[in-house]
């Protein structure tokens, strides 16, 4: 990445809104997905699935908007840290963005291959990506689940790293993205 696009300071308001808003939805959609799958068939189950799909489509759209917005923004520079940490952070961000797309798309594929309708909050129906296909359905389901767990793992790693920088390294990494958090020791915004 070109370092010319990084600047001192922190992420802007819209970037932070994307970040925390998507995390909020993520914290709803993951437990919902785990809970709903084993329910016996009922109308409630279909409604929970519909909600899961609606949130998933929302996250997919937000991921696209977020990536677009990110490409127009100059990124705040990271505080000094070992090169391996910068590389790890960069790789984690690539993985997070990739999974933000892959997980909902695999879910959409799963839904299409299952021959099920796809409706966004009861308002708009979206087309199937493929025709009903039982073999592809199992494959897409595996991909969706594995992808979701991988995303959970990367989110946890990302959060753990940010907290480690804040509480152990006592640098301004967490403050770059977190409203109301100041860089440790300085008492000021980064």
């Amino acid at each position: 990445m070109a370092t010319a696009t990084t600047v001192p300071g922190r992420w802007g308001g819209l970037s932070r809104l994307f970040h925390w808003g998507m995390l909020g939805l993520f914290l709803v959609i993951v437990p919902l997905g785990l809970y709903m799958a084993d329910l016996p068939l009922s109308k409630q189950k279909l409604k929970l699935y519909a909600l899961h799909k609606s949130i998933g489509l929302t996250l997919l759209a937000l991921a696209a908007l977020r990536l677009l917005w990110r490409s127009t923004q100059r990124r705040p520079s990271l505080p000094p840290m070992p090169a391996w940490q910068e590389r790890a952070a960069s790789a984690t961000h690539v993985a997070l963005y990739a999974l933000m797309f892959l997980v909902p798309l695999a879910g959409w594929l799963f839904n299409s291959a299952a021959g099920f309708p796809l409706q966004w909050f009861g308002q708009v129906n979206l087309p199937a990506l493929v025709d009903a296909n039982p073999a592809l359905k199992s494959l897409a389901r595996e991909a969706h689940e594995l992808g979701a767990w991988t995303l959970v793992a990367f989110v946890a790693l990302h959060a753990a790293a940010a907290l480690k920088h804040h509480f152990i390294d006592r640098d301004r990494t967490l403050a770059l993205m977190t409203p109301g958090v100041k860089a440790p020791g300085t008492g000021v915004d980064p």
């Binding site: 068939l41 021959g115 099920f116 025709d131 009903a132 039982p134 359905k137």
Partner: peptide, 12 residues
């Protein structure tokens, strides 16, 4: 009905 899930629901 081109959906195993729907077919098994309709059987119920």
């Amino acid at each position: 009905s081109k959906s195993q899930d729907r077919d098994s629901a309709l059987a119920g």
